[in-house]
Design a protein around this nucleic acid. Structure first.
Length: 567
RNA sequence: CGGGGCGUGGCUCAGCCUGGUAGAGCGCCUGGUUCGGGUCCAGGAGGCCGGAGGUUCGAAUCCUCUCGCCCCGACCA
């Protein structure tokens, strides 16, 4: 490709609306333009990069026996009603009606359509297992699109679905995907981690997320490198910090004391002089419209996900202040478990075996001291708390890190959720009908591009991995007016193409400085500069990442770059 | 949906408070100049100031409504 024939509208200044680096650079480097909130047009550079990402995904999916299909993005309501997700998806689903008033939606994922397809086709266990996939546009009416291409309303997803006769088969399909995903993200040049995840509204038993560490990310992940542990914060477990001071274990009766206007844990710590670890935090949550009192150590936070698992509740929310007043006769800030009879009390495991703690008295502006779980109130103990900074690995005690990440892939063991509700069955060896077991597996295509930019950039622009850069090498004749330099550039371009390199020749009549700036901004991993040393048969090969360069004989230059790309 | 910010040429922004002929830099076009890190000089094109309504002799500027975008929160298979 000749640069003069490529539409690359680079911007000298960063557009005002862009906050995160990948968004700023995608705009500045002329990769994308915004049409509306969370809706983007992909210009030639982005499209080239995205096609390369998709090709890598295809190759690795095909390698595990995946079969590419393309399902409709426009879906009838019926299949979504069958699975129950027509209602579950709520406002996140784009809905429309056809001219006859029939309800339709734009697909936000394709479990329903895939299951519907499979139940019409697959009859026998002999046809299993199957792995079906597509790379397709998904639509989600995000409440708040943000961060450029990281959270959008229309995006490309590789989604695949496995169909197996038996759970052991699902394990195999899941493992195949896990391996394939590792290969895909490695080939895309990313640094990533695979972590245990919560399955959320997808349903199912086991799931892993593939995450790239980035400040632009929205997901918090707990990792322990030495123990090889990684989990989404909502799912992670840890060994907590020990209480700041040992409990006084003498048997004492609860004792009320005034705490005027002391509502938060921080205020109580300052007021009483007792460390947060000596307090019981009381949080009232509503699960499926039933109230629960949740108790945590003062320095801990409730994990809604764990609350949901402990209670089995699907719909979870904090109680409203008015409800709390009703149930406790006191306002939040003075709540506690002693004497509570009208709802289940769930206590975090860290409170088991503790003595003489401080908690609310269920009377405004009063707290109780000398409250001992198991003696002064009874509760069931569960893991309810979110992992906190400073916690250590549950088994090894090694330090844990909490990092911000971008999710680029997610794999789920769905189990029978969709096959059951939608009636996907096959005959087994004995001629009996058996419900098929499924998995589903997604990759956010644009997020790979964003993650690569977030991971690899400097003050001069992007520094794309060679495998997914829009071009692998740019040939930059310092002056296109010098006939010898021009001829050498065109010759070198041909040599690069002959070696199979995806090359770009900067044939523009621009000053060298401008060409260098542009090439670095758009992130081409290698640049061959033809200039001053051409009379000696020498050109310069620059590596974008780190901006190191080497003089190379012009006859060797193409091969040299090919060598660098192969690693 | 709650809170905050911003809409003025393609981009970055000034002008608004205190109403009176719409500005700068970059980019774009023409000519010249220069040619290894976003050259320099001269000339030029391009904006009904997001939209609607109101106040006023007169509105980018004041008032009301509305639309859009960004950020924080809620939310997030």
């Amino acid at each position: 490709m000749f640069w003069s024939q490529l539409y690359v509208p680079t911007l000298r200044e960063t557009p005002a609306e862009a906050e995160v680096v990948s968004h700023q650079l995608l705009l500045r480097a002329g990769y994308v333009r915004q049409l509306a909130a969370g809706i983007y047009s992909y210009l030639p550079l982005a499209q080239r990069s995205l096609l390369k990402i998709q090709q890598i995904i295809r190759e690795e999916m095909d390698a595990i026996g995946g079969q590419e299909m393309l399902l409709p993005a426009l879906n009838p309501a019926e299949v979504w009603k069958e699975s129950g997700r027509w209602d579950v998806m709520g406002d996140n689903m784009f809905r429309l009606k056809d001219r006859f008033g029939r309800e339709l939606c734009l697909g936000m994922t394709h479990e329903e359509v895939m299951t519907s397809l499979a139940r019409g086709e697959v009859r026998s266990y002999k046809q299993l297992p199957q792995i079906w996939y597509q790379i397709q546009t998904k639509f989600r009416d995000e409440p708040r699109p943000k961060s450029g291409l990281l959270r959008v309303r229309q995006f490309l997803m590789k989604d695949s679905y496995s169909f197996d006769l038996l759970p052991a088969g699902l394990d195999v399909s899941y493992e195949k995907h896990r391996v394939a995903y590792n290969k895909i993200f490695e080939r895309c040049g990313l640094k990533f981690i695979a972590v245990e995840a919560h399955s959320g509204a997808m349903g199912g038993s086991q799931s892993h997320e593939f995450m790239v560490e980035s400040n632009a990310g929205e997901d918090l992940v707990v990792v322990c490198e030495s123990a090889g542990y990684g989990a989404n914060l909502e799912k992670a477990v840890s060994r907590p910090l020990a209480p700041a001071t040992a409990d006084d274990e003498t048997p004492l009766e609860p004792e009320e004391f005034p705490t005027p206007n002391q509502k938060t844990i921080a205020e109580l710590v300052a007021f009483t002089g007792v460390a947060a670890t000596g307090l019981i935090k009381s949080v009232v949550y509503v699960g499926d419209e039933k109230p629960y009192l949740c108790l945590l150590r003062g320095d801990h936070q409730l994990s809604e996900t764990k609350f949901s698992s402990a209670t089995g509740a699907v719909e979870v929310r904090p109680a409203h202040p008015a409800e709390i007043q009703d149930w406790f006769g006191a306002a939040p800030g003075s709540l506690g478990p002693v004497g509570v009879k009208n709802m289940p009390i769930l206590a975090d495991l860290t409170l088991e075996g503790r003595h003489n703690l401080i908690t609310g008295a269920n009377k405004d502006d009063f707290h109780l001291r000398n409250v001992t779980p198991g003696e002064d109130f009874t509760a069931t103990f569960h893991d309810l708390r979110q992992v906190a900074e400073g916690d250590t690995h549950l088994e090894t005690g090694a330090p844990l890190k909490i990092v911000k990440t971008v999710e680029i892939g997610h794999i789920f063991k769905l189990g029978y959720k969709y096959s059951e509700s939608m009636g996907l069955k096959v005959s087994d060896q004995d001629g009996k009908e058996v419900t098929v077991i499924m998995g589903s597996y997604g990759i956010g295509v644009e997020r790979i591009l964003c993650a690569a930019i977030e991971l690899f950039h400097d003050e001069n622009g992007m520094s794309m991995p060679a495998s997914i850069a829009p071009f692998q090498v740019v040939i930059t004749p310092a002056s296109y007016l010098d006939p010898a330099v021009k001829a050498a550039g065109e010759q070198l371009y041909k040599e690069c193409k002959a070696l199979g390199l995806d090359a770009l020749l900067d044939d523009r009549d621009e000053r060298p400085g401008m060409k260098f700036k542009d090439a670095e901004l758009i992130g081409i991993p290698y640049r061959i500069t033809i200039g001053k040393k051409l009379p000696n048969g020498i050109v310069e090969v620059q590596t974008r990442r780190g901006r190191t360069s080497a003089d190379v004989a012009i006859s060797e230059a193409a091969a040299h770059v090919a060598q660098l790309i192969r690693g």
